[in-house]
């Protein structure tokens, strides 16, 4: 795929837009791609990155990337015209509730770069007739990304740890959780955050799906490196996940 645009967002993130030569395959929110970073000798394995958004009109795939190490910094340095080798789409994806579901109040909770798959999810849910709510948390207001894009698909609530935007604190402390009874939760972010959300969901008896970020090698179910211990034993996050219902996980909630 060819890079059409690569925008640095603040210091630590980039939004990479890629165009396919042929038509993009069907993709589901929550699925991911495996990026081959060819020009950085320190990087050997491919890197899993969530599908942030699919722009069908422009035949574009968007990735939202946080620069944490060699590979992600190399991705941030791509320029328009560069070509990338990607395996896609991988993984299972979030459950898209049916149009007629009685679960109408949906909350999509994202932390840090974990907000990435929620934009695509929000778009798809809106297309299915839902009015999704987003609760996005970050350290500071500079780490809250893509807010205007999220606002196109639903209502956005925010928290920051330093209080520089939205409510001060963690997502699980946001007042909306006390005011509205949600029917279904989706979450992606740092593991401690997802565990806090899972604890909240379990205690409030709300169904909840989490998207895990276990480290991967192959990304296609061949190596068994990415396993999560579930009620069904060790299962591959890359093929049976990355999205799991919290009922299946053996987290101490």
């Amino acid at each position: 795929m060819k890079v059409t645009e690569n925008a640095n967002l603040h210091d630590n993130y980039c939004l990479l837009k890629l165009r396919a030569d042929g038509a993009l395959p069907e993709m589901r929110p929550g699925q991911f791609v495996q990026v081959w970073v060819t020009h950085s000798p320190a990087v050997f394995l491919r890197r899993p990155i969530s599908i942030h958004y699919v722009d069908r009109e422009r035949n574009e795939l968007w990735l939202l990337i946080q620069k944490v190490g060699e590979a992600t910094r190399a991705m941030a340095a791509y320029s328009p015209g560069d070509t990338l080798n990607l395996l896609l789409p991988l993984g299972n994806g979030f459950t898209i509730l049916s149009k007629t579901s009685d679960k109408r109040k949906l909350l999509l909770i994202g932390g840090g770069v974990g907000i990435a798959p929620l934009l695509f999810l929000g778009e798809r849910l809106q297309a299915e007739g839902f009015a999704p709510n987003f609760l996005l948390g970050a350290r500071t207001k500079d780490d809250l990304l893509q807010l205007e894009d999220f606002q196109r698909f639903g209502t956005v609530y925010t928290t920051t740890e330093d209080g520089s935007q939205g409510e001060k604190g963690y997502v699980t402390q946001h007042s909306i959780l006390g005011k509205t009874r949600f029917d279904y939760l989706y979450t992606c972010g740092p593991k401690p955050m997802m565990m806090a959300v899972a604890r909240y969901a379990a205690s409030a008896l709300i169904p909840c799906e989490v998207s895990l970020e276990n480290t991967m090698a192959c990304g296609i179910g061949a190596c068994l490196c990415c396993v999560e211990n579930t009620t069904q034993g060790h299962v591959c996050v890359c093929t049976e996940g990355p999205v799991f219902n919290i009922d299946k996980l053996k987290w101490l909630i």
Binding site: V43, F44, L45, V227, N229, H234
Partner: peptide
């Protein structure tokens, strides 16, 4: 099998 984590990248290789 063994508990997670089961993989570490190395220069030009990996440990499993």
């Amino acid at each position: 099998g063994n508990p997670y984590p089961r993989m570490a990248e190395t220069p030009a290789g990996m440990l499993n």
